[in-house]
Design a protein around this nucleic acid. Structure first.
Length: 121
DNA sequence: TCCTTGACTCAGA
DNA sequence: CTCTGAGCCAAGG
């Protein structure tokens, strides 16, 4: 959906940030969008709405070296169809890394959520 | 060419 | 806590 002016560049920013998520931690699409700078040609208000979806799109096109499974929605749940192979694989990977799921299949951000150090070195 | 469909989030009932 | 509806733009059938 609605790509930013520089989709490729934005995607790379997303991937770069996702690659920084430590093992055993998770981030939401919204957090990622919020942590990234507002793309040129887009105002903060619109970006607040579109950002998360752009991040989601970036995840769908992410390279193999991006830990996409550490990205979930703001509800702490996997944002993929429950039946899908991808969703199952994501849950398995997170469990492997020590991320625990609620009885309702939710991850507690207070425990596993990761906030970027504002700006890394 | 028109219509459907998106790895989302927030607010309200 | 769970469920619904709105916001926004482009690509594919």
């Amino acid at each position: 959906m609605w790509s930013p002016p520089d989709q490729s560049g934005y995607f790379e920013q997303v991937w770069t940030l996702v690659r920084q998520i430590p093992v055993g931690c998770v981030m939401s699409y919204g957090q990622i969008a919020q942590a990234l700078p507002v793309p040129d040609g887009s105002n903060p208000e619109s970006y607040r709405r579109l950002g998360p979806r752009w991040v989601g799109r970036a995840m769908r096109h992410c390279p193999d070296d991006v830990p996409w499974w550490r990205v979930i929605n703001s509800q702490g749940k996997i944002s993929l169809p429950v039946d899908s192979t991808a969703a199952t694989r994501q849950r398995e990977r997170l469990l492997q890394e020590g991320v625990q799921f609620d009885e309702r299949g939710r991850v507690d951000f207070k425990q596993f959520g990761w906030i970027p150090e504002s700006s890394e070195t």
